[in-house]
């Protein structure tokens, strides 16, 4: 048994530091953070897409159904809205822009649902220290 710290120890520690810093950096840019706002998009009761709603996300996405219907959503400035849809009544478009926790957009003809969950507002994880 080695009695003093040696180069292998230092190498091990540096390797662990690099791996962990990489994971922190990686989870910071891609994964859902605990204080993030997330939009979940469901089609026919199945989760098809999720967006982390930050100010710099800008995207367009079209949800298609098996019967040929579609809803085109637009995400910008932390808001999400539908700007085109195949349904006759366009209720989903009139529901406007949503950005806050618990808000939803529903399209009944195309069986599509968008809901927003804000992880910074509800503390769903309680820790016992």
């Amino acid at each position: 048994m080695k009695k003093k710290i040696n180069k292998y120890d230092i190498g091990l520690i540096i390797a662990i530091v690099i791996i962990n810093v990489f994971f922190i950096w990686y989870s910071g840019r891609s994964a859902v953070k605990l204080n993030d706002k997330v939009a979940y998009i469901y089609s026919d009761n199945q989760l098809v897409k999720e967006y982390v709603l930050t100010d710099d996300v800008k995207d367009e996405y079209t949800v298609k159904t098996e019967t040929g219907g579609y809803n085109t959503l637009h995400i910008e400035d932390g808001q999400i809205w539908i700007h085109d849809a195949s349904c006759p009544d366009k209720v989903c478009i009139y529901q406007g822009k949503i950005s806050r926790d618990g808000e939803i957009i529903v399209c009944l003809p195309n069986r599509m649902l968008i809901k927003i969950v804000d992880y910074s507002e509800d503390d769903e994880v309680d820790f016992i220290n």
């Binding site: 048994m1 080695k2 009695k3 003093k4 710290i5 040696n6 292998y8 120890d9 091990l12 520690i13 662990i16």
Partner: peptide
């Protein structure tokens, strides 16, 4: 760690692995 890595690592390295 003590059994297989003690030729290379000191107890500091083994303790860090244990903490991980």
């Amino acid at each position: 760690g003590c059994k297989y890595l003690s030729s290379k690592l000191s107890l500091i390295g083994i303790s860090v692995i244990g903490a991980m």
